[in-house]
Design a protein around this nucleic acid. Structure first.
Length: 487
RNA sequence: GGCCCCAUCGUCUAGUGGUUAGGACAUCGGCCUCUCACGCCGGUAACAGGGGUUCAAAUCCCCUUGGGGUCACCA
């Protein structure tokens, strides 16, 4: 043990994007560390040189930063137990492997992959229904043959006990017990000297003083051999929490085929990190009937007792709902700041403190969920309307020409250019003209926004201002008058 | 197949022996209304099946069924 506090780690392997399912593991770990004033450690498990890339490491770091899941120790910030990339910890693994060999808990095995395949084939040929367990000739020192040659490649294997059983109290599943005779003599160090997952993981968690290991339940099967390794190294194992997986809506393993699974995709789609985290937190954990949580609430209220054991299906609709709630809860200034980059993508250079942006966002945010949608709904406040074909043909007809002209006059003469006053003036005028408000409002809406749906007409006018409003009504009237007659 | 895990509305879940089985998303009605939303009101909808234990079981135990994980010199 390195010190007394809570130490939790997130240990992704950099093989592409940071998966949404992995984020939930990271989140629960992070919440636990923050709630307890402990340390959150980020470790890169890159011993699979086939699949790990430097670019992927950057994706992981960038994803975690965007999510706001800050780490106290990790590959870039360092820390007292580094390095934090497994590829740089070869010495630590070799030391521990030597210790295990010296204490009799491990041995060198010279069997080749071919030897093992042959043993398996022979076993199967005897009509067994499974349960193959490779018996290395080097397991028993009394009968072990000499190495095939002086420089023969070898792996280091764990001398796993065959008697008894191994058990632990899982934080989310309770007690789990497995008979030791179902375990293999796992390879600790490959012939190239690199550690295999179960060994690297244990050595790192041990030397980094990790007190709680939270991971997906596909690792339940790895836990007994890991506990045995802790025992062989004379150290108490950490607490384990195996969380259920995140499945696709159809029950399959969630993958690219079902939805965006890379965290950064959600950033580009216009989701808020806090919303994504909120959704993920609630997928598998609950706090009574509460659905919407701020980040601080999550830190304060998270508990392992209410983490469920059932696999959850990823529900985009619910995510969207949670996202919409967070979007609406954002203070005007923060909302504006978030949407500015998305406006820029549309070619609109708008300042985050632009009064029109602040005002318009307050209305548009009630009609969308993501920042991409928000930016789209904001467009016509910052550029001339793009008149959509369908609403234009339906509402900017010759008959609405005079209506728009009349409306223009009312707007031009309005004493106070504010929503309530405008509404009162327009209603009074339309009643006097014998027009229903909707027969005025729809053509006006299309003239003003180019669309059939928008925030309240008078709010739009007020935000646009008198001059711009008049220009657009004029434009709309002209379009209406030039339109082919309807029958 | 062996080993391990899981099982409440379509989905996420509340529920820790006694509840009209609650909430949220989705869905379907209605209200509001200048459109679209928001909001509000209401409806449909679940304890996988079978045995036990108990005065009493969604809750505890067993079996069945169904789903999932894992059986690598991947993680």
């Amino acid at each position: 043990m390195v010190d007394g506090g809570v130490r939790v780690r997130f240990a992704p392997s950099p093989t592409g994007y940071l998966h949404i399912g992995g984020v939930r593991t990271a989140l629960y770990s992070w919440l636990w560390a923050r709630q307890n004033g402990g340390a959150f450690v980020l470790r890169i498990e890159d011993t699979d040189q086939e699949r790990s890339t430097e670019q992927s490491v950057n994706v992981v770091l960038e994803s975690m930063r965007w999510l706001g899941l800050g780490w106290d120790e990790g590959p870039d910030v360092g820390g007292p137990h580094g390095p934090y990339r497994q590829s740089e910890r070869g010495e630590v693994y070799r030391d521990h492997a030597e210790r295990l060999i010296a204490s009799g808990h491990a041995y060198r095995c010279y069997a080749t992959k071919e030897d093992i395949a042959a043993a398996r084939a022979a076993y199967d040929a005897q009509g067994h229904k499974g349960g193959f367990r490779f018996e290395s000739p080097w397991r028993d020192p009394a009968t072990a043959p000499a190495p095939p040659s002086a420089d023969a490649p070898s792996v280091v294997r764990f001398r796993a006990p065959v008697e008894g059983s191994t058990a632990w109290d899982d934080l989310v599943r309770g007690r789990i017990e497995v008979r030791n005779d179902t375990l293999q003599d796992a390879i600790l160090l490959r012939s190239d000297g690199l550690p295999l997952y179960n060994f690297g993981c244990v050595v790192d968690d041990l030397t980094m003083g990790v007190t709680l290991v939270a991971r997906g339940d596909d690792h339940i099967i790895n836990t007994p051999p890991q506990i045995l390794l802790y025992e062989a190294l004379g150290a108490p194992p950490p607490t384990f929490a195996h969380m259920p997986m995140v499945l696709a809506p159809n029950g399959e393993k969630l993958s690219k085929r079902h939805a965006a699974v890379g965290v950064l995709e959600y950033r580009d789609l216009g989701y808020l990190p806090d919303a994504l985290l909120n959704y993920l937190a609630r997928l598998g954990w609950s706090h009574g009937d509460q659905e919407i949580f701020t980040r601080d609430e999550l830190v304060a209220k998270f508990d392992w007792r209410h983490v469920g054991a059932t696999a959850g299906k990823y529900d985009l609709k619910k995510l969207e709902y949670v996202q919409a709630e967070h979007l609406r809860a954002l203070p005007p200034g923060a909302l504006a700041a978030h949407v500015v980059p998305f406006l820029a993508k549309l070619g609109l250079e708008v300042s985050a403190d632009d009064p029109r942006l602040l005002a318009a966002s307050a209305h548009v945010k009630l009609r969308c969920a993501t920042l991409v949608e928000l930016a789209d709904g904001l467009r016509y406040f910052f550029e001339p309307p793009r008149y959509e074909d369908k609403p234009r043909r339906k509402f900017l007809t010759p008959a609405s020409g005079p209506v728009l002209r009349g409306l223009g006059a009312v707007v031009r003469d309005a004493r106070v250019f504010e929503p309530e006053a405008l509404e009162a003036a327009v209603k009074a005028w339309s009643e006097a003209e014998g027009l229903k408000l909707r027969d005025v409002a729809q053509p006006a809406r299309v003239a003003l926004t180019g669309r059939a749906a928008s925030p309240g007409l008078f709010d739009v006018m007020a935000i646009l201002g008198r001059d711009e409003t008049l220009v657009r009504i004029e434009t709309g009237a002209a379009m209406a008058e030039a339109a082919p007659p309807t029958d």
